[in-house]
Each structure stands twice: as structure tokens, then as C-alpha cells.
Write a protein that binds this DNA or RNA. Sequence first.
RNA 1: GCCCGAGUGGCGGAAUCGGCAGACGCACAGGACUUAAAAUCCUGCGGUGGCAACACCGUAUCGGUUCAAGUCCGAUCUCGGGCACCA
Length: 821
Amino acid sequence: MVEYMQFTNEMSGKMEKIYNHIAIEKKWKQNFENIKINKDGKPKYYCLDMFPYPSASGLHVGHWRGYVFSDVISRYKMLLGYNVLHPMGFDAFGLPTENFAIKQKIHPEDVTKNAIKNYKRQLKDIGAIYNWENELSTTNPDYYKWTQWIFLKMFEAGLAYEKEMPLNWCPSCKIVKSNEEVKDGICDRCNSITTKKMLRQWMLKITNYSERLLTGLEDLNWPYKVKKMQSDWIGKSYGASIQFEILDKNKKIEVYTTRPDTIFGATFILLSPEHPLISDISDWDNSKVSKHIVSLERLQEVKEYIEKSMRKSTIDRMSSKDKTGVFTGLYCLNPLTNKKIPVWISDYVLSDYGTGAIMAVPAHDERDNEFAKNMGLEIIKVIESEDELYTGYGNLINSNEFNGQTSKEATENILNLLEQKKIGRKQTNYKLRDWVFSRQRYWGEPIPLIHCENCGIVPVRIEDLPVTLPKIDSYLPTDTGESPLASIESFVNCKCPKCEKSAKRETNTMPQWAGSSWYFLRYPDSKNEKELLSKEALENLPVDMYVGGIEHAVLHLLYARFYTKFLYDIGVINFEEPFTELFNQGMVLKRPSENEKPQKMSKSQGNIVNPDEVIEKYGRDTLRMYILFMGPAEIDVEWDDSSIEGVFRYINKLYKLVIENKDKNIHHNDLEFLQHKFIEEITNRIENFSFNTVISGFMEYTNKISAKAKELGGLNKDLLNTMVLLISPFAPFVASELWQELGNTNNIFEENWPKFDIEKTRENTVEIALQINGKVKKKINISTSDSKDIIIKLAKKELGIENENTKKEVYVPNRIVNIVL
RNA sequence: GCCCGAGUGGCGGAAUCGGCAGACGCACAGGACUUAAAAUCCUGCGGUGGCAACACCGUAUCGGUUCAAGUCCGAUCUCGGGCACCA
């Protein structure tokens, strides 16, 4: 054996082996990095971590939670005989790096390089096995060539389009933010209040995929919560679109409603300020007014209202829920009541949902009710209810021939009538909006398009990809909202691929999400220069297990699903859903100080636990096992400096037990039973991802067999081999060492996961509880082969109630007897 | 406001199907070893009463179903998360 594993016990003065994590981990670390496993003929298993965004501050123990989890799964699957693909890469384009670079005056490319180097060191440090030969980085031109290629394919398919639109604009970051990146009107990066700005943007028609993104969720083995969040985000609703004729204007307003049953209560029509019928406000002057639907005398007031609401920031528009509006001076006809109802404009009506117009039913909608009261408009109740405002379903009143019908019946019947009259039809709607895909920043993939005066927008030729990002010194964002690339003449000026005349490059870059929306497809074939991935590489896909944080529940996971469906449609891949199973690990929290609430670890909070220190004191195995032991893997847990001691003590105990018994040869039925029962339990718990109970299971088992070893005078090699093998995915360093100590010459990861014999897990006797009227009175051992009658008889005897009358006798096999007197 | 989750000792948590609540670990207390400390080992550790055997209470609160409820049903409270004028 290795010399450095011998230590003098200071107490006894004897030379003996004690657990020395520093020496053991040093010895085995290299071995894990260079591990080669035979893959031939094995079924594939693709275990994927959400690849990290390499920040300058490096990894803390919180980040390790997911990585330890996926490493355990990968090692376990390897032992089960799978050909495991467990790759790692880096998602490095985007704002955090660019902002850091600006602050530190280091080029983003160098920031990225350094951060990646540090991340790789740390990832290797936990003893995680990764297929480093498949590594990729989104900022590498060999990679983003294909990010651009996918964009061009989408452009070709008509999914990418340009749009001048009011966008969320963060005045501090000087960047356009997608709806997903703005919460409550606040920028998710810098927390400043966002405003609206009209800008030309590239959009992706993700809404073409709304229905498939929704139905595709059904068969996925994902946490319920994530599926729910995605389907809420897509937000499908069932309703109707109905046309209202504008009196004297020969024009119609189409509205969307989910409650056609309340149409008799529709007492006014509302348009959003951006509604197409009125939105070309800049042209407005009195001479052209006949073109517009607004009456002449109302023009000035309407114009002022619209301008005011366009100026409002997102937060103002949402925070002041006071309903404001302006009357257009015009009227529509309610098609079923034939009553004249006024047309108003209000900014609580959203322009980009439904038709941008609604029929207001103030008796049965909270918002319409408030608006009607503010403006003194008519309120007509059409659903029977005692409340003045009732938003539920019920029986119809004041609705002519539909009176007395339920909402459900009336919806059906009214829809039929509207369809007959050709003024309405069933309609579904989605909350999902198209994806704002361009960014006016430097550190991203250039959008591979060219603007030509003759030919319009022309895609870069495939063979000219990638359009590389020029390495420049000045990449600060501009106040105008233009990309910093716009000022780089050597980048902007180019030739039109069609007509060869001089033209200008698109200067917007792609959002941070672009590279991460498809990276999982690239890993199996990350060096392929000819195609995105080869047919052979497809065999590794889709991803069987995707491990990452819940924060990506909607955005990343939805975008990745969208890309996958698109690439399926154009025949690049042969599956529609990228991630068969998803696991969201919880965060590791820490109290910044004793009286505060536990918080997410972050450098700014100053509550980071540095893994390097923990490793030095307790070792990698202890840290790995403690991270799993802390609590259920999917729940947030709080780091506790003293609890980790228990895990360290355990590994010491285990080490000692194996060393002391490795040459003994004691066999016993009890040991055999414990061993097989243990294999069964550990395997079940792993399959359920209940890793905290796996660890407690190891502790319990070790306690039990230690006691047995004392009783019997030792253990045997088979039992110890099995135990070490079972713990190897969790504590790979000490397991490798003990495997060798036990006399095995092969690498422990070439072994097979232990099997248990179900016959040997059956007990002959078992302790059951005896209850009278549901209360435990006594515990006895019974033979498992005894019949119910025998056991009940025995129970009554034990309880001293043989002669009493019983109302009921319940026996639950191997658990309990309950006698009701 | 709407939609999801979750409430178990001093703490983290355990408890397949409704079947012995508190596994495992931390902290704490007592003991052994030691000149002493650390480490290690042993014992105890939900509450109340009792010398004890034991009895009663106990899984956020109230009620229900059941021979039996942490687990199922109804209501309430608290905490966490998601969405938020989506008609």
C-alpha cells in the first residue's frame, strides 16, 4: 500500500491507518480527469447540467449542488452499464460580462477566457467526471457560426422579421429589454425603472409555436411546477372574436372576449391607445379627420390622451391602476341588443393581446366596472347574482331569448347565433408574445444580415459564416440605442451578396439566450465543421436528464423547446422535445448574520461559503455528501457550518470500519440479510432522487453493521466491497481508495452496480405493534409465515384480553394488530 | 387580486399504499479515557405528571371521514413561489 497512507496515531503511538482526505484526494483526482470508460454496445444516457455563465467571482458551494447531483447521477448510470454523456460548456455572451469588462477596463474576450479557466479548475475540483473532449463555448466563432446559421434558417422560414415598436428601454443599461427581462417595469439587471422607446427590432415568431409548445409539455417528465409556469406563460384562453359596427363610419371594430355569454351587458367598446384604427396619430390634422374614426370635436382631447399614455413608462402604466380614458365621440351597435353604445379609448386595454379592443361588460368585469363608474357609463346586469359586481358564471337575465340559460349553454348558443349572422366566431388566444431578438450591445453574436439599397435585406451567404465579432477597444453602449458595432466602419461596410454593390451590415447582436437555446444539440458533435451535428451524433439525443435551477423555468427552457421544434421542422433533428426529464435543484442559502433571514449566496451579500476552505478542512467527499445530506435536493437549504462535521465523522467511521475488517472472513445470515436489504433501499432511494435519505441510509447501515461486527467478530469482503461500490458515486475519492485497500486492482467505475436477491431481503421474524382501540400497548416479534388467525390469537393473549368481546380485529401484515373493544 | 406549493422537537430533516411520529445528523447534557484539553467511545434528549413501571397530550388552528390521520376531506391562519389590467 501507499506509504503516505500510514500515520502515527499520536494517542497510542502506534502506526495505523487513519482517514487522510488530503492524501487520498490528491491521489485520485488525476484518475477521474483521465477516466476512459468502454462505451461499446451500451445504451445511451445523456445527463446535462445547465451550462454556467462564467462570472469573474467563480463558483461557491451553492453552485455545486447541481453539479454534485448530476455527477452522482452520471456515475450511478455508468455503473448501471450506460454509455453516459455528461458534457460541460460555457455560456459567455451577454451583459454581465460586458458590464464587468467595461467596469474593469478589460476586453470581454479576456474576461471570458479567464473566467472559463477558473471555472474549469473548480469543476474538476469536486471530482466530477465530465466529457471535456466535448466542451464548447457560445463565444467561440466555431460555435456561434451555427447560432447564426439557425437564425438564417429562421429568416428563410419567415420566422424572423423586423418591426418598429415601442420597447422596454432601460436608461441605465442603455439596452432594449424583452418582456421577460422586465419585472414590474423594473430592469432585472440594474433595478432601474424602464421606459418605452420606439426602435427597429428583429423579432422571432415564437407565437407560431404557441400551441405546440403547450401540448408538448404533456408527456415531459418535468416538475409539475415548471410545466404549470410554462403553460401559464403561454396562457391559452378560449373565447370569441366579435365584430361591432361603427355607426356612420362604414367600419367595424373587432373585439376579443372570453365571455360571449355576457354580450347583452356590453354597454361600451374600448380601444387601446395603440389600436390600428387610431394609432397613426402623427398624420393627424383636421383636414384628414374624415379618414379617422374619431369625431372632429373630440380630436384634440383624444390626441392628447394617446400621446400621454405613449409617454408613460411601463411602471406608471401598471402601478396606477386608476382607469383613465377618453371618449371618441363615436358609437357602435351592440349586434344583439341593437343598442347604441359609445366607443372609448383607455390604456388599460392592451394593444398586443387579442384584437387590441374589448367589449366592456361593467356588471361582470372588475376593470370595466371601475371604468364605467369613473366615467358614468351604463351598467347592465346579465348574470343572475345578488352582488352588484359578479365575475363568475351563472344563469342569464336581461338577455332576451337566452334568459334562464346557464353561462355554458348561453356561450354555445350565442356563438352559434353570431356565426349565423357572420359577425363572430370562436377564437383562442395566447398570452405568449413574439420574441424581441435583437440587442444594441457589443458582446453577442452579430445578426448575419446585410442591408442593401437595391435588394433590401439580404442574408449572409452560408459559406461566409460566421460573421465574426470584431475585436475592438470601444464597445461602450450608445445613448442613441444603436449598437456600438454601428461605428465600426470596417465591420459595417460590405458587399451585397446578391448584387455585389456596397451595402451595410446589420449591427444588432443576438440576445444572451441565443447560444443557450440549442447548445445541448452541439455537445455530441462539438467539433463538427461541416454541419450542426452529424446523423451519428443524433444517437446521443435527446437529453435524458437536465439538471439546473428553477430560475430557467420559463425563458431558457421555453426558448430551447422552440429552437428544438424549429430544427425538427427543417429536418436537422428527429425529435421535438429536447429534455425528457428535468430536475430543479434548490439553492443553498446562508444567513448574512444571525438575526437575518437566510439568503441566496452572493458576493454582494458577503455570505458566500468558499468551497476551497471546506475542501481543505474536510475534503471533497465530505463536501459532496454534505451537500446532498442537507435536505431534499429540490428544496432550498440553509448552509450550517457545524452540520458538516457529522458527515466528516461518518466518513472517518466508514474508513476505519473497512480497514479494520478488510481481512476478516465472517459470514452470517444476518449480514447477508442486511446487505441485500441495503442494496435494495439505496437503489430505490437513488431512483427517487432522495439523496438526503441515501446518505442517512449509509449512516444507519454503517451503524448496524458496526454493531454486528462487534457481535460476530468481524465482517467479510463481499459485504465491504458492496458497501464501497454503493457509496462510490457519492464519495468517489474515499471509495476508490477503499476499493484498492480491499485488494481490487481494477478501477471502481468499471464495476457493475450491485444487485440484490429479493429472497434474501425477506425477514423470518418481524416486530409488530399491538394496539387496543388504536393505541399502541405492546410490541412483539412474530414469524412472518404465521397466519392472521394465529397472530390475532397471539396478540390477544399478549394483551391479556383473550376472553373479552371484541368489536373488530384488524391485522395489517408485518405492521400492526388493532383490537377494537 | 388570481394561480401553485409548504407548515413535524432547540435546529436540518425522516416517515412507499392511511398502519408503531420524530429515522439519520447537528446542538445540548451526563459519563468513560486523559494531569488537562482536543479527538474518540458510551448514555440521554417532543411536552406534562411520576422515584418508577406508566399515564396523558403532541405533526400550524378548528372541524370531519376511518378500527387507525403528519398523510384523506372542508374551513381558517402563516410563510414561500409564480402571474399580474391577458377582457
